[in-house]
Design a protein around this nucleic acid. Structure first.
Length: 262
DNA sequence: AAAATCACCTGTCCGC
DNA sequence: TGCGGACAGGTGATTT
């Protein structure tokens, strides 16, 4: 699930629930989630510290600890956070549980185990080590123009490539393409100046709108593609049945009438 | 060089 | 009811 808007929603959730509480211990029930660290190192590092702030870059959430490392969450396809004030409920798929001394807990829940939790020296190092492109909400138009002009192949692959722009995934790439009236397979080299402009504008507006909707598809206005993104769904503009096509291994939904090929 | 395929994982849904 | 296959909002490695 989690693309940039979801991760931003998780970040804000963390800010209003899990900050400034001393950490008692960290319970790792699934070590495959851990990257570049171990259960004992993670627990040892976090004990008696507290989460003091958050940053997001693309689909990554970084949590400040006041110590040498930042805690990084990546949510894969099915990850999310849940802050627990009660001690009763045992959550399904909870992989890491942060226990605070006040008895509250923060759960990293991840059904498919495709998420990651790691300790990182700095956000900047992580971004450069992993060659991430500019964050989709921070990139300016000049940067965007340069990076898209250097792109090759299909537009949707470009939009989903985290090394070009960080933050868009399958769902929001489709939404940006729909809002821009461009086919997922549109060849980047055929984009004119006007189309590049429109794409830039729509990346920003779609992501901001999604965050405003708390990344909850139920809250999206029916004029967006997202609520119609299913088999036999109808284009909200022209009522044509939306089509599906595989682009770089992922299912793309699009309106064959509104979204032009190129 | 880009696109396809596989691999990593679990769970759900659909058709026979 | 049961089983197999397809598929799911991600990503990296390997192959075509």
């Amino acid at each position: 699930m989690p693309e940039l808007p979801d991760v931003e929603v998780f970040r804000r959730y963390m800010n209003r629930t899990a900050l400034h509480q001393k950490i008692d211990n960290v319970e790792v029930s699934e070590t495959r989630i851990l990257k570049n660290t171990s259960a004992s190192k993670l627990a040892g590092f976090l004990k008696n510290k507290s989460f003091s702030g958050t940053e997001r870059y693309g689909k990554n959430l970084f949590v400040e600890t006041g110590g040498e490392y930042l805690l990084r969450f990546h949510f894969g396809m099915t990850g999310y956070l849940k802050f627990l004030k009660d001690n009763s409920r045992e959550l399904r798929h909870s992989r890491i549980l942060f226990h605070f001394v006040n008895g509250y807990r923060l759960a990293f829940i991840c059904q498919r185990l495709l998420g990651e939790v790691s300790l990182e020296k700095s956000l900047e190092d992580f971004v450069s080590d992993n060659k991430l492109g500019a964050d989709a909400l921070s990139i300016n138009f000049e940067e965007f123009k340069d990076i898209i002009r250097s792109g090759r192949g299909s537009l949707k692959s470009f939009l989903m490539n985290q090394n070009k722009i960080a933050g868009l995934g399958n769902i929001y790439a489709d939404e940006v393409l729909f809002q821009s009236s461009l086919h997922p397979g549109y060849n980047i080299k055929n984009l004119d100046e006007a189309a590049v402009n429109i794409l830039f504008k729509n990346i920003k507006s779609v992501l901001k709108y999604a965050i405003k909707c708390k990344a909850d598809p139920e809250k999206f206005d029916k004029s967006y593609l997202l609520p119609h993104r299913r088999k036999d769904g109808k284009c909200p503009r022209c009522d044509t049945t939306v089509k599906q096509v595989k682009v770089s291994g992922r299912t793309s939904y699009f309106c064959p009438k509104c979204q032009k090929k190129g």
